[in-house]
Design a protein around this nucleic acid. Sequence first.
RNA 1: GCGCCCGUAGCUCAGUCGGAUAGAGCAACAGCCUUCUAAGCUGUGGGUCGGACGUUCGAAUCGUCCCGGGCGUACCA
Length: 545
Amino acid sequence: MKEVISNIIKDVIRKRGLPEVNFSLEPPKNKNFGDLSANCALLLAKAAGRNPREIAAVIAADLSAYDEYFSKVEVAGAGFINLTLNEKIYLGVLDEILSKGGNYGKSDANKGRKANLEWVSANPTGPLHAGHGRQVCLGKAIASLMEWSGYEVTREYYYNDAGNQMNNLAKSVYARYMQLYETDFPFPEDGYHGDYIKDYAKRISEEKGDSLKNSDDLSYFKNFAEKRNFDRIKSTLETLGINHDVFFSETELYKNKDIENLLADFNSKGASRVEDDAVWLIMDRKRFQKDKVIVKSSGEPTYRLPDMAYHINKIKRGYDFIVDIFGSDHGDTYKEVLYGVETAGYKTEGIKVIIHQMVTFRSGNESVRMSKRSDNVYYLDDLIKDVGADATQFFFVMRAANTHLDFDIELAKEQSDKNPVYYLQYAHARISGIFRNAAENFSDEVLRKQFNHALLATPDAIELLKVLSGFPDEVESVAASLEPHKIISYLNQVAESFHKFYHNNRVLNADDIETTVARLRLCEAAGTVLRNGFGIIGISAPERM
RNA sequence: GCGCCCGUAGCUCAGUCGGAUAGAGCAACAGCCUUCUAAGCUGUGGGUCGGACGUUCGAAUCGUCCCGGGCGUACCA
């Protein structure tokens, strides 16, 4: 819709012999200024050194001729052109929503393009903790946003199973196992303290007795724990409706020699050097403080080298768009990884990295501590159990990724109007209620009647339609920025205008079938947009509450 | 010290490729249920947009500096 209007304005500008400008066309903050406001005259005036209002007046006069589109065109302020769209445009949008249904809002802007989204990527050293939830839920929403904009999306999970952390995991389980037999057996200093480790040790002891007491090779412990950890991680993800297409293991990159070859490549390019028995990647001092170790003096690569090889692997798989989601604790390291990828001769323009800030949890006024050291960690499972999958998803996606998130567990649990997720869902439940009542009180024949658009010309109905008509533009712009929290702001507008409409416009009325049928269609459209939006951010659309 | 992110109403936050009178939810206050779910609607109060300077017709938005908070600054990931 915006595009159509924008093209009309561009035509008018061209026909007047004025230069092409990249102007903005946005709904003004103040509704009294109309539906859309263009700043083209201000920009043209700047370029031509003329009075903006003069130019605006010329363009506005030409636009007035398009009266099938505009009911009002006026010049305001410093030279804005304010447009009020013809109501017929909006009534036409209703037909579009009804016919497209679950596809209304999808765009083919990226049709035929393949994208890879990598997220979660927690190493299988333990269950996901509540803080992981932000990335988990953000990624879920971003993946569907990308699909709505036309991408074919591969959801991918990368995990480091070759390095130190997995050795620590094995040592930790082994130590807990040994402690079942020798209470003073030492626990590794940087071992994993969670209760789940003790549980694994107990189960191993039950299965194997003390036959593994003098193991030199801890791979049984490692494999046992890794498998259980992954099972639990996957089941947590499943409760949120997340299923990755690819689980990519670091070990793979050793097996297929990608890491070895990359190291040789750096060496042959003179991009790396050896110091203190370690291999260092030579970094550009303008961007980095110092060189970075890629192979430790022990001979083991640091996480950076496999990460670089992994990103090259993804590039080679032929994606048009590669997106990574990391926490802010990786804010510097991803730059090092991309630098390595560039140094190896690959372009990184197609890679976008989303960094999200950390989460703090509180319960009302009490802060909830997330200690990694203690045995009792607040796991993501626990959070989902406490507040439900919908509230979990909603609260994590509600805020922009690059701001700190303050997660109020008490509020998320609240089954009342205080909880922001219910405002949206309630709108949908109300619509479902109307349709339940309609089915009871009216025959199918009546409900399927052709409807008369003109009967929807009340201010609340038109306002609702205006909001609904903005959905495709909204999805497209949010998909371009990959900021799903904006969908929530938009859905709030939908819910608000629906609630208003509902309050002032009785839908079901046996004495006025014509209006009933027309209003039902509008409700159907509102329900469709809510459902589609909920689908993007990943929450359910309840039939009743 | 250096790098990245943040600082907007009492609270949690939108708005940030410069645009008109800075918004929402919660909290506070005043109203609205014999009619499709009041988890709703209507109205009121509430702001030196962390601070200072600068750029310009115009700054919450851009620049510089300062203050405050988070995360980095490993031969951990």
